[in-house]
């Protein structure tokens, strides 16, 4: 679905932001791109919508070479949800705001209406279609932004720090919607520095540091490489750090969330039968 081949990028001022990056994200995967600010995350992201073109190497999205594809062509394949929804909202109603994307794709009349209704339903905004997006709270504005992207029908969804500046409940809501979209077959790319978020939702992770791809693989594998994460300036999720000494001793496997850890520890302390009784189904 998404393939980077020896992608490098140097800014006109000579700063090399990405160095020889190669990866492959398959259709339907939920991948996280993680790294600190300045690791090259943002630069890589700007390649996904063709805003930047590789200095060397290439990036293929659903068979399209991003350096040659037109903006609208790419927008049809990849939807972006950015950190601040206020950077894109400008129309008087939620419905018009959601219709903006499909309209740019050249769609008309009925088809637009259908897509607006569908996208609004996916993010739970149906009852707000006639409201002014300015009057909604930040969490709902973020959903308006997401719906306006979904209305273009992309297979791939890129979320750039979707929870920064949101409160915990709003963050959970956006991630629940994302998870549902993933289940329906969307390929999801989550760009973030929040490891707890990654632990809870992603399947695999790509670690960026100093413009290089330091590591990629399934979550438990990536998070067990303390050395590489330290190099990238990242801390593994709290649950993994908590169990580190016992993982090395082989007592507790590499679980990522408090619920899974509780399950494991119950089993260790009380044996499988007892654990099965006290654990929620």
């Amino acid at each position: 679905m998404i393939r980077a081949e020896n992608l490098s990028f140097t800014y006109p001022n000579g700063l090399q932001a990405l160095k020889d990056i190669s990866f492959h994200i398959k259709k339907g995967e939920f991948a996280a791109i993680i790294g600190r600010n300045g690791s090259g995350k943002t630069t890589l992201l700007k390649h996904f919508n063709g805003l930047l073109k590789p200095t060397s190497g290439r990036l293929l999205i659903a068979g399209l070479d991003t350096a040659r594809a037109r903006t609208a062509e790419l927008a049809r394949k990849v939807g972006f949800l950015f950190q601040n929804p206020d950077h894109q909202i400008f129309l008087p109603t939620v419905a018009q705001e959601i219709a903006f994307g499909p309209r740019n794709l050249g769609l008309k009349g009925r088809e637009i209406e259908r897509r607006v209704a569908e996208a609004a339903a996916q993010v739970g905004l149906t009852e707000y279609l006639d409201a002014s997006p300015w009057k909604l709270g930040k969490g709902l504005r973020q959903r308006v932004a997401l719906a306006s992207v979904l209305a273009m029908g992309p297979d791939i969804l890129v979320l750039d720090e979707p929870t920064t500046g949101q409160d915990y409940r709003q963050a959970r809501e956006i991630m629940a919607i994302t998870k549902a979209l993933h289940r329906k077959g969307h390929t999801i790319i989550l760009v973030t520095h929040d490891m707890e978020l990654v632990a809870r939702y992603a399947e695999k992770a790509l670690v960026l540091g100093g413009g290089r791809l330091l590591l990629q693989g399934p979550l438990t594998e990536v998070f067990s490489r303390d050395d590489v994460l330290a190099e990238a300036g990242l801390l593994p999720p709290a649950v993994l750090r908590l169990t580190a000494p016992y993982r090395k001793a082989g007592l507790i496997p590499g679980v990522l969330t408090p619920e899974d850890l509780f399950r494991e520890v119950c089993t260790i302390l009380r044996g499988e039968d007892h654990a099965a009784r006290i654990l929620p189904a």
């Binding site: 707890e196 709290a238 649950v239 908590l242 408090p258 850890l261 509780f262 520890v265």
Partner: peptide, 9 residues
């Protein structure tokens, strides 16, 4: 997460 785990215990 840490507090959540111990609370469940």
């Amino acid at each position: 997460p840490v507090a959540a785990f111990f609370r469940q215990l």
